[in-house]
Amino acid sequence: MSIMVLFFSFAADRMNARQKLYDLDGTMTVKEFFEKFLVKPLGDPFDAWLFSVNQEWVDGDALLHDGDEVAVVPPVSGG
């Protein structure tokens, strides 16, 4: 199964890409995907990021399916 992952803000800088296609061996959650593919290049723990799947905000327990679009968004703060 394949998913497209979109990276926003400094996540794109850390990944050296705005988007990447990932081939997964089977079903996994967003958190399992993060821990397998993203934790090292992004350099921050799972809880430091926001995720959406197919343009809906999700938590780490959301299951990924073939063709899903996952967005990885760093938290934003402002004043």
Rank of each mutant, 00 (worst) to 15 (best):
G60R: 01
H65Y: 12
D23S: 14
F33K: 01
F46P: 00
S52M: 09
V5D: 00
S2F: 08
P45V: 01
E56D: 12
D47N: 13
V30Y: 01
N16K: 15
G26Q: 13
S77Q: 06
S9I: 02
L50E: 01
V30C: 00
A12S: 15
V73E: 05
S2M: 11
L50N: 09
P74L: 09
V53K: 11
A48H: 11
S77G: 09
G67C: 12
I3G: 03
S77L: 06
F8N: 03
E35K: 10
A17H: 03
F33D: 00
D47M: 05
V72D: 06
S9P: 00
A62F: 13
I3N: 05
K36C: 07
L21C: 08
N16P: 00
W57T: 10
M1V: 12
Q55R: 13
D66H: 15
V58C: 07
F33T: 00
V73I: 15
R14G: 02
V58T: 06
M4W: 01
V39E: 13
D47W: 06
A11Q: 02
D23W: 03
N54F: 09
F8L: 08
L21G: 05
L50S: 07
I3S: 05
G60N: 06
K20Q: 14
F37D: 13
E56Q: 14
G67T: 11
L63V: 12
G43F: 11
G78T: 12
L38C: 04
Q55P: 00
A48I: 01
A12F: 05
V76Q: 10
A12H: 04
F34T: 03
H65C: 11
L50V: 12
D44M: 09
M4F: 06
F37T: 08
E35F: 04
S52H: 02
A48R: 06
G60D: 09
A71P: 04
V53Q: 03
D61A: 15
P41Y: 11
D13V: 08
V76L: 15
E56M: 10
E35G: 08
A12N: 10
Q55T: 10
H65D: 09
D68A: 13
W49Y: 07
K36E: 14
F51Y: 11
D59H: 11
V72C: 01
